[in-house]
């Protein structure tokens, strides 16, 4: 019986891996760029637009937290965390007036939009996010940027730390780069 289970797992694991790979393939690749001594990052979610639009259209607030962590790669030990940034964005719909209030939980900036798609993009896209100052990075050292987002229906508190404990989040993949400016590539 144990042998049969192991055999089935061996058969199923490659299938799961390939399916997971196919799912990730369609994702728009995130990328980082360096400007004025700061590492910036552009990223957007995959396959969340329809869901977000549906939720916002039904009048439910949505909150999204983006977590970026820069790790220094080490060969014989766990990677060392260099920086951990957590950004939150929130949209509160007003169905009566057909307006969507967009709130940046990190900066406190609040704005309205009458376009649901704009509200959706406000949540699902992070453009030109300053991640870390290059002075923190060591030259010619390998780093990895890991991105995770947490999406919630309803209003969350600003940091969302409690929510992060009760949810696994969605892994957006890792970006490997060499400090400070060279050989940036995505995986």
């Amino acid at each position: 019986m144990l042998r049969i289970i192991c055999f089935l797992l061996l058969l199923l694991l490659p299938a799961f891996s390939s399916a997971y790979g196919e799912e990730k393939k369609g994702m728009e690749e995130p990328h980082i760029h360096f400007e004025s001594g700061v590492v910036y990052f552009d990223v957007q979610t995959f396959n969340q637009e329809a869901y977000v639009l549906k939720v916002l259209g039904s009048g439910s607030p949505m909150t999204m937290f983006w977590q970026f962590e820069v790790l220094q790669q080490r060969h014989y030990f766990f990677n060392k965390s260099i920086a951990l940034i957590r950004l939150g964005r929130q949209v509160i719909p007003d169905l009566v007036t057909k307006r969507w209030l967009m709130r940046d939980l990190s900066g406190g900036v609040v704005s309205y939009t009458t376009d649901a798609h704009e509200a959706m993009r406000f949540l699902t896209e992070m453009d030109h996010v300053a991640i870390v100052d290059v002075s923190v990075l060591e030259p010619a050292q390998d780093y990895v940027l890991e991105t995770t987002f947490y999406i919630y229906e309803g209003e969350q508190e600003e940091t969302g730390w409690w929510s992060s404990l009760t949810s696994w989040g969605e892994d957006m993949g890792s970006i490997y780069f060499k400090g400070p400016l060279e050989n940036v590539h995505a995986q």
Partner: peptide, 17 residues
């Protein structure tokens, strides 16, 4: 009333979803 309708609508849609 409008806000009540909105709240109910939101709740209902959330539950339906």
């Amino acid at each position: 009333s409008a806000r009540s309708i909105e709240a109910d609508y939101r709740t209902y849609k959330g539950l339906e979803r």
